[in-house]
Design a protein around this nucleic acid. Structure first.
Lengths: 348, 348
DNA sequence: GTGAAAGCGCTAACAC
DNA sequence: GTGTTAGCGCTTTCAC
């Protein structure tokens, strides 16, 4: 019907690599090489092709690229979108990806391992070139299985012996110890920790590492094991409140609480104040992550900083190296630092 | 070298539609029909194929599907990952997608329109079947252009006359009016609003609608235009603090502040308290969105609830209808409701 | 109701 | 240095 002379673009509205090839008078393969910065194209040809790409406003179809080569897509599994620490990691991921062709696409979990598995599969089925997993709760064997399908880097999961994937973390055991040491140095005498209660993930688990560090530091300070209080709260804010209430209404209440992550420590603050207690006069509170909300005056929350942005950057470096072919493992660790604020200030 | 008799799976490790076809003794086309629930397959054939899929643990390659048909992927552009209101929308999106084959994949913006455009292109190039845009700052013409390439639904962008895309929103003008009315009813006499200062997006802009409503309600209550204070703050928390300080240190300071969104109202709370003022005794504060953090005791922030989860659900319904072929526009609007808390309580 | 075969937009051998 | 061409794993006519 149509008298359109340009059959290749007439077919579908979309500009394809063919359109570009015809427009610049070269072969499809030549265009492909330019796109991939592949070896063996003259400057003249490259210039011609790039001009056509600009004129035609061509963008390669990533799905089609994925059928033979790469999609230039990095999948990111984010276990939870409400955790105020994760945005910092994402800033770091953006930093690391800057200047590359790669685009990060995110899957958002909801605290369930089956949802996390579904998302990982969805990402793999969409041919991502690599995967960063943030704070996921998958068992080590599951992570291993995934690592066989696609290069991965985990954040918030310790497995220093793993060889099939990389990780980027802070030293959570040290950080847990720092929380205890800092509270004691501020004059608190009976600090307790509120941690994550759940299925055992083994030593890879961040919250458990922090517990270990906390316990170790308390022992070193002369506390007997039965004087060290670690209260478990399931992964819901309501549960944190219940746990804090139980703790504070017990016979020998703590005078400070270490919330294992800011996300929960902010709820600890809320629970403490709901009980009519003052922070820090009646109860000191310390969190972990030093995330954005800590700085709000109404929170003014002391927290252990784990340099999230740097962790995000490193995770990208590691992943791109894996994609480029590295097969040995690398496990990046950064040292935590106390970020002191009003929630632990003792004027004694 | 290998004596593997099953050549089709030997080729690459991956199980493909071919593997399934051979395993179940039917054609590739038949398997495809089962996958898509297409018309014209007998129950017996379907059963055979489904059994093979289960045994082989087959998952279709979405990138390959996208070359001819759909990818069953919904792209979601989220303008900002720190906004505490968005998680609620995402819960609604998950609700709406439940039971379908569709998977949501997220692109995360950083407050810049060029980044937003890049993400939208990245999503389209990866052949998403449809796009939901949350709180994006793109101009109307840009949105129109995108709508020509892929079905879209916008959230947080009003354009009731638009015919090429759908939207899901609350009535922001009404909500802005409610904030003013509620503050006045609580006994505040000089409420001010802190809104978003930026390039004009026209009437589609949510913050502007809330301003219009706020202004209208103030006028209706007898305030002269020069008595109605609307202060602009750029899209950064530091700027909100500066704006609040300027407002409160001016000759005739307001006795209450309406922060145009919780994300900023939480910063308003912080700024007010940094100045040594009490909430609500010295200054009342009201936000918009009724997001999670409002309920924390340390925030205890009154806010206008816009039923985010419902908006998320509706956006999916609209998008799936568009994907299914609807070409007329539908613009969903839900009524806002005041969610009262301590930050506006006047004991007078 | 079922299958054969063309082709989606790319990449990567391999010729030239 | 450049072009030809065979697929990647699916969907979709169109025969039978």
């Amino acid at each position: 019907m149509s008298q359109n002379s340009d059959m290749t673009t007439a077919r579908s509205g979309r500009v394809t690599i063919r359109t570009v090839a015809e427009h610049s008078g070269v072969s499809v393969a030549a265009v492909s090489k330019v796109l991939r910065n592949a070896y063996g194209v003259s400057a003249a040809l490259r210039a011609k092709v790039e001009a056509s790409i600009a004129v035609l406003n061509y963008r390669p179809n990533a799905a089609a690229r994925g059928m033979r080569g790469q999609t230039y897509t990095i999948g990111v599994l984010m276990a939870d979108i409400k955790n105020p620490f994760f945005p910092e990691l994402i800033d770091g991921i953006d930093d690391g990806l800057e200047g590359t062709q790669y685009v990060p696409l995110f899957g958002i979990g909801r605290g369930s391992t089956s949802v996390e598995t579904t998302i990982v599969h969805a990402l793999i089925d969409r041919q991502v070139d690599g995967l960063i997993m943030i704070g996921q709760r998958l068992k080590s064997e599951v992570v291993q299985t995934i690592a066989r399908e696609v290069p991965i880097v985990v954040i918030g999961h310790h497995e220093p012996e793993a060889t099939t994937f990389d990780s980027a973390n802070n030293d959570d055991e040290r950080g847990g110890a720092m929380a205890a040491e800092y509270l004691l140095a501020q004059g608190f005498r009976h600090p307790a920790m509120v941690t994550l209660g759940r299925i055992d993930l083994g030593g890879s688990d961040v919250s458990q590492r922090r517990e270990v560090g906390f316990t170790r530091a308390m022992r070193a300070a002369g506390f007997a094991d039965n004087m060290i209080r670690i209260a478990q709260a399931a992964d819901s804010l309501a549960d944190v409140t219940a746990t804090v209430s139980a703790l504070l209404e017990s016979p020998n209440p703590p005078d400070a609480i270490f919330g294992w992550a800011d996300y929960y420590a902010l709820e600890v603050l809320s629970a403490v104040r709901t009980l009519g207690l003052r922070v820090p006069e009646d109860i000191g509170v310390i969190g972990y992550d030093n995330s954005g909300p800590c700085a709000f005056t109404q929170n003014d929350l002391t927290s252990i900083d784990q340099s999230g942005r740097e962790i995000g950057r490193q995770s990208v470096r590691l992943l791109l190296e894996r994609i480029a072919g590295r097969t040995t493992a690398e496990h990046f660790i950064v040292a935590p630092v106390v970020s002191a604020r009003g929630s632990t200030r003792r004027q004694a």
